[in-house]
């Protein structure tokens, strides 16, 4: 059995797999089940200051090659997260009778204005997350809010500085958009502004799927972020670029479905591996399976400690 434990910004993870934001993250019960199924950590659905409706259905669909979604960041707001999701998750995390540090919970926060991020940062820190992930890169709310902050270096820097100025007790990571000319440059700018790490990447696009019989786009929002197997090579390259540009810890996310995919992401520079669309293909039980596959790969290749492979691609 290889050592799959990872320290990410000084937060300990039992294994490198993390539930990505937006999937199965509505309730504490759901997050706890994902941990039970094998995830090393979980990320909440992105939390707003106020309730946010999101888009009507259809909001997602998949094929064997890709997945596309435009959920539109539906959420009940910080009040529910603070009254329910965090207390329930943090309370019930340790198995009875054992004083273990529970699987880390990453709080994803989202706002439509830079100012809102400041107020939200103060409130989310009080909820007791292990890490705060700043989502400035969702591609499927552009009609509502315009270009994501992660696509404009000055905006990304402003949000990073503001949130870092408000949160002192836990690491702050920035979720980057791949839909930019140079993700390395944006990452470097955020790193200089104080980011402790990154989640790379959010979904691609937006893209569009047209039902030719209906003669209309399937998604109600017409366009949505693309994820799944087809984007993996792009995401691996993006993680490679961010790691080269900053050397900071990265949750490598995008198209990872198997243990070997996860290993590949780590070789590109990821310390943790985020999975979301994987749940569509393998269910949340897939987390435990991916961890087993990573362990098998390590055994077969004489890797005793998973840390050995992080960022080995030069």
């Amino acid at each position: 059995m290889a050592n799959l434990k990872i320290k990410f910004c000084d937060v300990g993870f039992e294994n490198p797999t993390v539930l990505a934001s937006g999937i199965l993250g509505v309730t504490a019960s759901s997050l706890k089940k994902v941990v039970k199924d094998g995830a090393g950590g979980v990320t909440t659905k992105s939390i707003w200051l106020e309730e946010h409706k999101g888009h009507s259905n259809p909001t997602m669909l998949g094929t064997e090659n890709y997945f596309i979604n435009a959920v539109g960041l539906s959420d009940a707001g910080i009040e529910k997260a603070s009254a329910e999701t965090f207390p329930e998750y943090l309370d019930g995390k340790s198995p009875p009778g054992r004083d273990l540090r529970p699987a880390p919970i990453i709080a994803s926060i989202v706002a439509s204005s830079i100012d809102d991020f400041g107020e939200l940062a103060e409130k989310i820190e009080k909820c007791g997350p292990d890490i705060v992930e700043v989502n400035i890169s969702c591609p499927n709310v552009e009609d509502e809010f315009g270009k994501p902050f992660a696509c404009v270096a000055d905006d990304a820097v402003a949000v990073t500085k503001l949130v870092k100025g408000k949160i002192s007790s836990v690491p702050v990571i920035v979720k980057l958009s791949p839909n930019v000319e140079s993700i390395g440059e944006i990452a470097k700018a955020c790193a200089d502004a104080g980011a402790d790490g990154f989640c790379a990447v959010n979904t691609y696009g937006p893209g569009m799927v047209i039902d030719v019989d209906m003669r209309m786009p399937v998604l109600k929002n017409k366009v949505g972020g693309v994820s799944g197997p087809g984007i993996k090579p792009l995401a691996v390259k993006a993680v490679y670029d961010v790691f080269k540009a900053t050397g900071l810890p990265i949750i490598g996310t995008g198209g990872v479905l198997s243990g070997e995919d996860a290993i590949e992401m780590m070789m590109a520079g990821a310390r943790l591996v985020g999975m979301g669309t994987m749940v569509y293909y393998r269910g949340s039980e897939g987390f435990g399976e991916v961890v087993r596959e990573m362990d098998e790969w390590c055994e077969k290749n004489g890797v005793k400690n998973i840390e050995e492979i992080i960022g080995i691609i030069k």
Partner: peptide, 13 residues
């Protein structure tokens, strides 16, 4: 399709 988590049931998820 088991992805969004809106229908997760308390407290088993």
């Amino acid at each position: 399709i088991g992805v969004c988590g809106q229908c997760a049931i308390d407290d088993t998820g």
